[in-house]
Design a protein around this nucleic acid. Sequence first.
DNA 1: TAATATTAATGTCCCTAAGACACAAAATAA
DNA 2: TTATTTTGTGTCTTAGGGACATTAATATTA
Lengths: 232, 232
Amino acid sequence: MTDSYDINAFKNPLLTVDSVLFTVKDHALKVLLVKRAKDPFAGRWGLPGGFVDVDLDNNTDLTALRKLKEKTNLAPRYLEQLQAFSSHNRDPRGFSVTLVYYALIAAQDVSSHIDTVENAQWFDIADLDNLAVAFDHKFIVEQARTRLQQKALYSMVPVYCLPEYFTVSQLKTVIEIIIGKSIQRKSLIRRIDSSKIFQKSAEKEKLGGRLSQLYCLKADVEIVNFERNLSS
Amino acid sequence: MTDSYDINAFKNPLLTVDSVLFTVKDHALKVLLVKRAKDPFAGRWGLPGGFVDVDLDNNTDLTALRKLKEKTNLAPRYLEQLQAFSSHNRDPRGFSVTLVYYALIAAQDVSSHIDTVENAQWFDIADLDNLAVAFDHKFIVEQARTRLQQKALYSMVPVYCLPEYFTVSQLKTVIEIIIGKSIQRKSLIRRIDSSKIFQKSAEKEKLGGRLSQLYCLKADVEIVNFERNLSS
DNA sequence: TAATATTAATGTCCCTAAGACACAAAATAA
DNA sequence: TTATTTTGTGTCTTAGGGACATTAATATTA
C-alpha cells in the first residue's frame, strides 16, 4: 500500500489517440492512412491521430473525431473504442500509450472530401503487407479489422459503410467484403426484419433486373446484437 | 493538417490504470475496492489502480497487475482490457483518462491474502448502490459487469473464478451468478465437451450424492468463443 | 438390508435461427 | 415474345441450445 507517490516524480507516459477508419470501396476493405510529417517515422504512412487537447476535447472520443477532421477532413458515421496499445518498443522515443478507435464511413461520403487533403490515402487492407507503416500501426490495423469482422457476424454495423438508403444486395456485398466470405441473402433479410431497426422506402433500379427495396435505419435506434454468429 | 504541435505546449492528460477485480464468493458476484488514502475522494472506496511507472511496467497490462499486487496483494488468473474512460467531470482536478481492466480470481485464492491487506474489501455488486464510491468508479464497475456478463454467454471465462479442478456444478453456479439467471446443465456439459479445452480427472464427492467428475483447463489452450449465446 | 433422498450424468425431443436452394416476381434486353 | 438478370419468398435441412425425463452413483435413514 505504497500510495505515497508524488505524481510529478513520474514521467507521465505520452498518450496519443489514433483511429482506424475503414470504408468499403472498389469491392475491397480500405483503411485510411496519413503521411507522417513529423519525426518518428516521418514520411511513412500511419494512422490519423494525435494528442489530446484538454481545452478542445471533452473526452477521447472527441479527440479521435477532431483529429480525423483535422487530418483527413472526414466525419465517420460510426466510431468505437478498440483498445489501448502500449509498450516500450512501439515508439523509438520510449514508453508510449495509444488509445485506438475504429470507425466506419460510407464510400460516397469520402471521395469529395479526401481529394482536398494531400497526404491522406485509402489503402487496400490486403496491400498493407508491402507498405512501410509507422510504429505498430500495421498490427493495430489488423486488430481493428479482426474486431470489425467479429462485429459484422453478430450486428449490422456494416450499414455505416453504406449511404443512408441502401439495398439488401449492397449490405450483403459490404458484409461479405468485411468478413471475407459469402453469406446467405435470405439470412440477411431475416435479420433486417427481426431486428426491427430498419424501415422500407420507395424502390430504385439497379443492374437490369427486378427493382430492389430500399431500406434505411430508423431514427434514434441502437444497432442490435444477434444471438448467433453468421456462418463462421 | 496542422501537425505543427509542440508536445510540451499541451497539458498531457493524466493517465491512470484501474482494475475491476471480480470474484464469486458467498453465492454472489463481488468486486474488490480499496479505501482511498489520497485526496480526490480520500476515504472513499475506489478501484485499485494508479499511475504507470515507465521504469517498472513494460505495458499497461503490467501496470494493472502491479497495482493489484501493491494494493491488494492479489494476482488475478484472468485480466483483459475493458476500455478507457475520460472526461472533464470525472475527476475534480480536471480532464483525466483512466484505462480500465477487468479481472477474475478464484475465491479460494483470495481469503488468505486479502486479510493481510487493510483497506481492501470485497463488495457485493448489488450493494454498490448504497456505497459512496470515488470518481465514476460505480459506473465503471457496472460497465465491467455488463462486459463480463456478455462474455459469460459465449465463452468459458467464468472458470477463472474457480480452482484449477472444478465440477460441472461449480461452473454452472458461477456462470449463473455472473449472468443472473439459471442455465441448463446439459448445455454446459455440451460446451465443455465441444470446446475441447478441458480435460477430465479423478472424481471427488460433494453434498451427498453421486460423485462428480472433475475438470481442469488443458495446458496452453485459449478460451474459445462459441457461435451462440446462452439463453439470453 | 432395503428404501429413500440427493446430486451427477445421459438420452431425447423440441425450438429457434441460420444454411441451402428451388421458385416465383419484376424488371431489362434481344 | 422470349431469354436474362436481379429481387424476393417458400421451405426443407442443420446445428446447437432448452426442457425435462431417466438412469447412475453415492449417502442417509428406516
